[in-house]
Design a binder for these strands. Structure first.
Lengths: 126, 126
DNA sequence: GAAAACCTACTACAACTGTAGAAGTATGTC
DNA sequence: GACATACTTCTACAGTTGTAGTAGGTTTTC
């Protein structure tokens, strides 16, 4: 279940605040996304068809709820990205990432910190 | 200039070995990609239209050459991914990545190592 | 209770994607 | 030189995506 670019916009809005009506989703969309109300409805309907969201009727109105978590969607997207751009190989990707000139020292620091946290977490479990 | 999934296949093949004829590209494609020769030609033509590859005539035949590097394409793709799934924020992504349960200890090690290398490299430049 | 404002479902439609066939032309082979 | 091969360009066509209009029902508002 792959999200298209527009679908990500909708889902991002929905993850921020849900359950939500189409109108509420519209309000959460970034300012530069200026879609007709019916466009948003169309998107939500398509997302429901894909089982990415659940549509409930509340009175005469529809309220939407994500069926996939942001985590899950991110994981999927990362996987696709890795498959496409790195033949699915994590190692080369990590190198690519670490070598990224645009990473600030702070971000590098952050990444290392995150890794340390994870390490101690998994040590704890062992 | 965004590559579609099929276009990545073609480009991956072309990066592996170029300049290459359509036939050679076909040979480099993964085994599970079994496209008609004309499909590959179509893709290459479309990629040329997008300026992702350059088509040269060699005699009556076409030879293709990437115009974007794999690096560049990867960077673009990473950027799109980050924008979509993380609002473009690198920090949260790094956390997400470091927290990935599927990272093996070895990969974590690798990532840290890569970071260290980068650090000393940039220290050297300073 | 008629008008305004909103909602829903359905339809539309062009651009892009994935995938390839057809027809024509050049090349290698006996 | 006729036949098989291989290449090229053009055309095709269904499915997906981005984006929205229209028509008809419902709720709110003087």
């Amino acid at each position: 279940m792959r999200l298209t670019e527009s679908e990500w916009q909708i889902m991002n809005a929905l993850w921020k605040n849900h359950p939500a009506t189409a109108r509420e989703v519209a309000d959460e969309l970034p300012d530069d996304v200026d879609w007709a109300y019916t466009t948003i409805k169309t998107m939500l309907t398509r997302l429901a068809a894909k089982n990415a969201v659940k549509e409930h009727k509340r009175g005469n109105m529809s309220v939407y709820e994500p069926l996939v978590t942001r985590e899950q969607a991110r994981r999927k997207a990362l996987r696709s990205f890795l498959d496409q751009a790195f033949d699915g190989a994590v190692g080369p990707f990590l190198h690519f990432l670490a070598a990224d000139k645009k990473l600030t020292p702070k971000q590098r620091q952050q990444l290392k910190q995150a890794l340390r946290e994870e390490e101690s977490k998994s040590r704890g479990k062992k």
